[in-house]
């Protein structure tokens, strides 16, 4: 049996490694747009205070994965899926496509950063923190500003989990940070009000300038003097603007193939899509309970369960495990359980 996996994040790699272990007689191919190896995505938002992050974040180089018997096709993007023909087309160079046959297909494409529509017209004015390439770019920008003798000044847009983590880490690294959040309290989707208030105090104590109820309407300015436009006016003087407004599951390939999608790729309790032999796991999978699990513990649980299932070792449906999300904001611990 040939198993094709799309995506080299926690979901795709955990599945591929486990399936190799459980079913060594089957072949596993991992298709990924990434080129830098399998790295720890949760560490991205902690990537400014650590000098060794760019090497430490790599958990496995792709050649190390290949040594375990997984065939890795890196730097290639999945572009079209033919579920009836059991084929997936991928592209390396713009004009160079290849078609891969599979017996089972596991979609673990992950998510892109969600960019609110008002920002789409000025992509050159802001950055995101969604991949190791993004992190390396942000670190180079910091280095350049510091080499010129200035203290880097950042606008972080979005006071959710990633925005708060990044703002905290940039501030601890010695930068000036202004955090803009559209709602009256931070991380309102994960925290109860009392914990949001504690989080605000922790960030302010680290000299993060937090603007609540700030509706950001767009960006202006020049590279070394970027500006954030809000309902109250314009604030300039930023070296970088980081948009952290949520995630957008990569569902296009599945949707264009006629597979059911909503916010994510719709799967049943066996993590199967409505196309035969096509499965989806990770934060792009919309589970039978209507949820997208964007946390490490349930994603790994999906990957390990699916490996057992496809190896013929379990016929019981996947059950989401109990898990505790935790924001990695320096000095902050929520008193109450996280909402999910």
């Amino acid at each position: 049996m040939d198993v094709l996996v799309v995506g080299s994040g926690i979901a795709g790699v955990s599945f591929a490694e486990e399936f190799r272990k459980l079913a060594p007689d089957h072949s596993v191919t991992l298709l990924t747009a990434e080129t830098l190896g399998y790295y720890s995505r949760p560490l991205l938002s902690h990537g400014f205070t650590r000098d060794d992050i760019e090497t430490r974040i790599i958990l496995r180089r792709f050649d190390q994965l290949e040594q375990t018997g997984i065939r890795v096709l890196s730097g290639r993007e999945a572009v079209a899926l033919d579920p009836a023909g059991h084929r997936l087309d991928c592209r390396a160079e713009p004009d160079q496509t290849a078609s891969l046959a599979y017996d089972r297909l596991v979609l673990a494409p992950g998510s892109a950063a969600l960019i609110p529509p008002p920002f789409l017209g000025t992509p050159e004015k802001f950055k995101v923190l969604n991949s190791l390439t993004d992190l390396i770019g942000l670190r180079r920008l910091r280095d350049e500003v510091r080499c010129s003798g200035s203290q880097p000044r950042w606008a972080v847009i979005g006071g959710g989990l990633i925005g708060c983590e990044a703002a905290s880490d940039l501030a601890r690294a010695g930068d000036r940070v202004t955090l803009f959040h559209a709602l009256p309290r931070l991380m309102e989707r994960q925290l109860v009000e009392e914990d949001s208030a504690d989080l605000l105090a922790v960030l302010q104590n680290d000299h993060v300038d937090v603007r609540l109820d700030a509706q950001v309407q767009g960006f202006a300015g020049e590279p070394a003097n970027l500006a954030v436009v809000t309902q109250g006016g314009m604030e300039d003087g930023f070296h970088g603007i980081l948009v952290a407004c949520g995630f957008k599951p990569r569902i296009e390939v599945a949707r264009n193939a006629g597979i059911a999608t909503r916010r994510g790729i719709v799967v049943d309790t066996f993590l199967a899509t409505d196309a035969s032999d096509v499965y989806a796991i990770g934060d792009a999978a919309e589970c039978a309970d209507g949820r997208l699990y964007a946390y490490v513990t349930p994603i790994r649980s999906q990957a390990l369960w699916l490996a057992r299932h496809l190896a013929g070792l379990t016929q019981e449906p996947w059950q989401p495990p109990a898990f505790k999300p935790k924001a990695k904001v320096h000095g902050f611990t929520a008193v109450h359980p996280y909402l999910f």
Partner: peptide
Amino acid sequence: DDWVCPDCGAAKVD
């Protein structure tokens, strides 16, 4: 059992 990885929030089972 409810301790989590201080770096990434993964569970003890991970």
